[in-house]
């Protein structure tokens, strides 16, 4: 599903964000990306959605070489890959339902399909009752669930979560994690960058540990720290 072959990312100032990374993620996997801040987790994620290009090496997502993809096809890649962030990235002037429907409308969907898929995604994350609230009226957990619904509404094959619990208290974090495992159980490949040791240790999923841009550990049913 995802393959990185000998991927390096070097910034113009000479520092390496990633160095000789080889990684294979199968369809339906659930992996944690762990490592200190600046270890390269976010860079790796940006390569997967082609927000950045690798300096050397090959990044393949769902059978497509992301680096060689013409710009005019990038939006198709992004429809296959849902993303949620630590800071939610919701539009403050749109309601919960509008924020979710936005992802469908701007990808060219119309009419009944927009309504039905929006309701489906909202019920998946348990926000049907909050559909007409604005983000400022929601708790952090509810905001992240809105962002999750938006990421899922296009039925992506891969879901990437960059520190999704970074701004949330422990109880709310667990709500989000439960949702993510459910999404994974439904068949979506899940890549989650996190600093939350408690969650990683409790779930015992595959753990990829980055340090100074290199993969230093890759374990099935791993722990946060070796």
């Amino acid at each position: 599903m995802i393959a990185l072959d000998d991927v390096s990312k070097r910034y113009p100032n000479g520092t390496f964000a990633l160095r000789d990374v080889d990684l294979r993620i199968d369809s339906g996997d659930f992996i944690f990306l762990v490592g200190a801040s600046g270890a390269g987790k976010s860079t790796l994620i940006r390569l997967l959605i082609r927000e950045e290009l690798a300096t050397t090496g090959r990044v393949v997502v769902d059978g497509e070489d992301v680096g060689r993809m013409p710009r005019s096809r990038v939006h198709r890649l992004r429809r296959k890959v849902g993303v949620v962030f630590q800071d939610f990235k919701l539009l403050p002037r749109k309601t919960v339902a509008e924020n979710v429907a936005f992802a469908l409308i701007v990808t060219g969907h119309e009419g009944r399909l927009v309504r039905e898929e929006t309701e489906r995604a909202l019920s998946l994350v348990g926000l049907t009752a909050r559909r007409d609230h604005f983000p400022s009226q929601l708790s952090g957990g509810e905001q992240q669930r809105t962002a999750l619904a938006r990421a899922l509404v296009n039925r992506p094959r891969i879901l990437i979560a960059d520190e999704p619990t970074g701004n949330l208290d422990p109880v709310t974090s667990w709500e989000i994690i439960k949702l993510l495992t459910r999404v994974n159980d439904l068949g979506t490949t899940l890549v989650m960058a996190t600093h939350n040791a408690e969650i990683v240790n409790a779930l015992r999923r595959r753990v990829v540990h980055l340090d100074h841009g290199m993969v230093v550990r890759d374990e099935r049913e791993g722990l946060y720290a070796a």
Binding site: H75, R78, R79, K89, T107, G108
Partner: peptide, 17 residues
């Protein structure tokens, strides 16, 4: 720009943006 960022993230085409 926030709206544009989200549009691009969820896969809106450049033409649509």
């Amino acid at each position: 720009r926030d709206e544009i960022e989200i549009m691009q993230l969820v896969g809106a085409s450049d033409a649509f943006v």
